[in-house]
């Protein structure tokens, strides 16, 4: 299936044209996107480092996750919304951008990694909540998450250079 006609239609909508043509809307979306990224990766890294065994501002891993995850999610939604708006404006070129496609792929992997953690080690968090270092399953999840999200950030920056 050819996605280009669909993306072209999207790109021709008044909203997309406005984002593309107004001088300040696109950089503003980018700025909010970066603030969102800083909150997503900043809070996720605190949790991931705790899963790797680096002490955080509290001993309980569960309470730490409950402290920070709401901020992660709100910021992630902000990133998705600003990302979608930027995508609308130039969809036909983004889907031909290798860095963009890899970024989307890594996002899926980061989501899967989180899913595996929540269905696995997280279900038994009561057993290792205050234990340092955490079990290997949690450490693998923390390391993968740090690496995958860092990859997402790198590829995001590379989109502009390809």
């Amino acid at each position: 299936m050819d996605i280009q006609p669909l993306l072209q239609t999207l790109q021709d909508t008044p909203v997309a044209a406005f984002i593309r043509e107004s001088g300040s809307v696109f950089p503003l979306l980018e700025s909010v996107h970066v603030i969102g990224i800083a909150i997503v990766y900043g809070t996720i890294a605190v949790v991931d480092l705790r899963l790797l065994g680096v002490a955080s501002h509290r001993r309980s891993a569960l309470k730490l996750i409950q402290d920070l995850l709401p901020y992660t999610w709100v910021a992630f939604v902000v990133c998705v919304m600003t990302g979608l708006l930027m995508f609308c404006a130039n969809g036909t070129t983004y889907v031909q951008n290798t860095a963009f496609l890899w970024k989307m792929g890594l996002l899926v992997l980061a989501g899967l990694n989180m899913g595996v953690f929540h269905l696995g080690a997280f279900r038994r968090i009561g057993e290792w909540d205050t234990t340092l270092p955490p079990p290997s399953q949690a450490r693998v999840a923390g390391f993968s998450s740090l690496a995958l999200w860092a990859g997402v950030i790198f590829l995001g920056r590379w989109i502009a250079f390809l």
């Binding site: 970066v34 603030i35 990224i37 800083a38 990766y41 900043g42 809070t43 901020y71």
Partner: peptide
């Protein structure tokens, strides 16, 4: 620039918390 952004996330994340 990518390393710069990663460092921004560390600074802003720690500042925020």
């Amino acid at each position: 620039q990518s390393i710069h952004i990663i460092a921004i996330t560390v600074l802003f994340g720690s500042a925020l918390v």
